[in-house]
Design a protein around this nucleic acid. Structure first.
Lengths: 343, 343
DNA sequence: ACCGTCACCGCAAACGTTTGCGGAATATCA
DNA sequence: TGATATTCCGCAAACGTTTGCGGTGACGGT
C-alpha cells in the first residue's frame, strides 16, 4: 500500500531545490540549467512522477473533463455516439463522464446540475423524450458553460448542434419505397415534441407529393408507438385490418419497424411482396431479422466526433474570442435490404 | 459570460468574516452562532453557491470518480453493465468515466494508466480479448489503487471479482437441448485465453456426460468464430456438410448463434425441428430473430451494480482496515425461445 | 479582583502545481 | 575596478476548501 504518489515537492526536497525550479525543469523552461534539468528529470523518472491532475485542474480552473447526457446508454445509436465522442475527447486530452437521463426530464435536470457541480468544462446533450422545458440548459449556458446538442436538439438554446439530415433521410427512404412500386405507404410517426419527428414526417410528405401520391392521415400512426414495439405491432395490425390498408410502412425508427414486421407476419402477408417495411437508424439488429430491414443509417460515430469537436473548440477558445454557434447537418445513408426489395 | 462561480471567499469577504467561519457555517458546525449561520446560508443561496469539487478533491486527495475499462461500449452486454455501475456510483456520490479498450491490449494499458493519472479512486475492468499480460494491473494495484474485475476477470491479480456462473449457465442450456430430444449437440467455443470459455465448455461437457452423450471434438468449433458472425456461419456450414452432422448447436455467445442460424437456414433445415440453436448472453436481438433464439441471460445490470458496490466498499474502507477480496458469482437465467423448442 | 468556562471566530497550514517578480551569483564590458 | 548584462533560482501568491489550534470577549463563580 504505497499510498501517496511522488510530488514535485518531494523531488524538490530530495534535490535541495525549490518546487518552482522542479516545475520549470519538467517543462523544459529556459531559465533552468541543463544540469538541474537532468537531475530533476532523472529523479522524476526514477520515482515515476505523475503530475497531479487535480491540482492542475484547480490551478487552471479547468477540469479537462466533458460531460455527456444521453437518454440511455443501452441503446445502439447512443452508445455509438459515445464512442465517437471518446475518440475525439481522448486524443484532445479530455476525459468523458457519461450520465443517462433514462428519458426522464427530472433526471435530466439532476444530471445537468450534477455535471456542472463537478466542474466539467462543457456538456454534450441529447434531450430526453419528455423534455419540454429548457430552464436547466438556460441556467448553465448563461453561466458560461459550453453546451453542444446532438441528435435530440433544443431549438430554444442558441448553441452549436449536430443533427442528422432527418428530412432527407426520410425523403430518400420513402422515395425508395415508391420506386419499388408501393402505392399506399403508411408512416409510423415519432413523439411530437422532438423536431426530428417533424423533419422525418416532412421528408415523407415531400416524397409522396413529388410522386403525386396523396398524404392520408388515416394511415399515419401517431402517439407512443415509436419506442414501444408491442404498441407498434398492435396499431399496425389494426391498420392492416382496416378497409383500405396500406401496402408499405415507413417507421420512424427500427424498433417500431420491428413491431410492424411482426404484425405483418402474423397477418400472413409476405414481406416485401405484399408489404414493404422500412425503418430508421440502422440499428444492429435490422441486419439480423428475416428479412433484413431496410433502414436509414445515421452516422452515430461521426456525430459524436463532430459534437465533441465543436464543444472542445468552444472550450478552448480564448476568453475574448466570440464563437459563433454552428449547426452541423450530417448526411444519412439509405440501406436497402430485403424488407423493401426482393433480393 | 459570468465566468466565475461564487466561492467561500467571496461570501466571507461580503460578510466581513473569515472563510473558515463560512465553511463551518455551511456544514452546520456547532461553533458558529445561529445568526452567522443564517447570514451565510442566505447569501450562499442568493448567489447559488456550489462547492468547488476540484478543490475538495485536492484537499481530501480523493476525486470521487471511478474509472471503467471495457472492451467496447457499443455492445449490449457491456452497456448494460455500465448502466448498473452508474446506478450505484451516482447514488454513492461518484462520477463514472468510461474508456474502451476496443479489445486491444495496448489500448487497455494506455487506458489503465490514463485513469490512474487522472486520479480516479478505483477502477472497474473487463479485460480485452487480447490481454495475456497483467503487468499494468499489477502496477497500479500495488500502488494501492482498488481494482475490481467483472465478467472478463484476471486470475493473476488478487482482488475482488464479479462473474456470472458460466459453468452452470452452459450446463443448463445444454441440458435443455438434450431434454428437447437433440442427440448430437455441437459447441462453438470461445477464445481460449478467457476463462469463461473454459467454464462454458465444462458446463457443456457436464450436461453431456450426465446424459451419457459422448464428447466429440469433431463437432467443436474453435478459434475466432466467437465474435465473427461470418466465420461462425462458414464453419457451421462446413459442419452441416460433414459426414456426421450435429442436430443442435450451443454457441458461446449470441452473435455466433446468429451466424449459426444463418448457416442452418441457408442449408434449408427447419429450426428447431431439424436443428436447434442456443446462444449465451441474451442480447437484445435474440428476441427479434425468427425464430427467436434460446439463450442464457447474464444479469449485466446487476453485475455492474455488484462490481461498483465492491469497489466503493474498498475505496471507502478505513486505512488500517483490511478488505478481503471477494468473488461474486451471479446466477444466470435460461431463456427458452423458438430456436430450441416448438412454441 | 482573579480565574475558569464557554461560545464564537480567525490564523495559518495543507492539498500540488504554476508563475510573476525579484534577487544572487557570475560573466561581460568599458 | 566598477557598472551592467546574463543566468539561474527561490519567494510567495494563487486556485478553493478544510481544520487544528489558539485567541478574544463575555459571563459567572469565588
Amino acid at each position: 500500500m504505497k499510498n501517496s504518489q511522488v510530488t514535485i515537492k518531494d523531488i524538490a526536497k530530495e534535490l535541495g531545490i525549490s518546487s518552482s525550479t522542479v516545475s520549470r525543469a519538467l517543462k523544459n523552461h529556459p531559465n533552468v540549467s541543463p544540469e538541474t534539468k537532468k537531475a530533476v528529470t532523472d529523479l522524476a523518472e526514477k520515482y515515476n512522477y505523475q503530475p497531479n491532475s487535480i491540482a492542475l485542474s484547480l490551478r487552471r480552473s479547468k477540469s479537462n473533463t466533458i460531460g455527456v447526457i444521453i437518454p440511455e446508454i443501452v441503446h445502439f445509436f447512443f452508445s455509438t455516439v459515445i464512442s465517437g465522442i471518446e475518440d475525439i475527447a481522448y486524443s484532445a486530452g479530455y476525459s468523458v463522464i457519461v450520465s443517462q437521463s433514462n428519458e426522464s426530464y427530472d433526471r435530466e435536470v439532476i444530471d445537468t446540475f450534477a455535471l456542472s457541480k463537478n466542474r466539467v468544462d462543457g456538456i454534450l446533450i441529447s434531450m430526453s423524450r419528455e423534455t419540454t422545458k429548457y430552464d436547466h440548459f438556460e441556467t448553465i449556458h448563461k453561466r458560461g458553460l459550453p453546451i453542444v446538442f446532438f441528435d435530440r436538439v433544443c431549438d430554444a438554446i442558441n448553441c452549436s448542434k449536430v443533427v442528422v439530415d432527418d428530412f432527407d433521410g426520410a425523403y430518400q427512404v420513402t422515395r425508395h419505397l415508391i420506386q419499388q412500386g408501393f402505392k399506399r405507404i403508411a408512416h409510423l410517426a415519432g413523439p411530437e415534441n422532438l423536431i426530428l419527428s417533424k423533419h422525418r414526417m416532412d421528408g415523407y410528405k415531400k416524397a409522396l407529393k413529388e410522386h403525386s401520391l396523396e398524404f392520408d392521415e388515416s394511415i399515419i400512426i401517431r402517439g407512443r408507438a415509436a419506442d414501444n414495439e408491442t404498441l407498434a405491432k398492435q396499431l399496425t395490425t389494426q391498420l392492416l385490418n382496416s378497409a383500405n390498408p396500406p401496402d408499405a410502412m415507413f417507421a420512424i425508427n427500427d424498433r417500431a419497424a420491428l413491431g410492424v414486421m411482426k404484425a405483418v407476419k402474423e397477418k400472413g402477408l409476405k414481406i416485401p411482396q405484399d408489404f414493404a417495411i422500412a425503418g430508421f437508424s440502422n440499428w444492429e439488429f435490422t441486419a439480423m431479422t428475416d428479412p433484413a430491414i431496410t433502414t436509414v443509417d445515421q452516422p452515430g460515430f461521426k456525430m459524436g466526433q463532430e459534437a465533441a469537436k465543436l464543444l472542445i473548440r468552444e472550450i478552448e477558445a480564448e476568453k475574448d474570442e466570440v464563437i459563433e454557434p454552428e449547426i452541423k447537418i450530417l448526411k444519412t445513408d439509405l440501406i436497402i435490404r430485403g424488407s423493401s426489395v426482393a433480393v
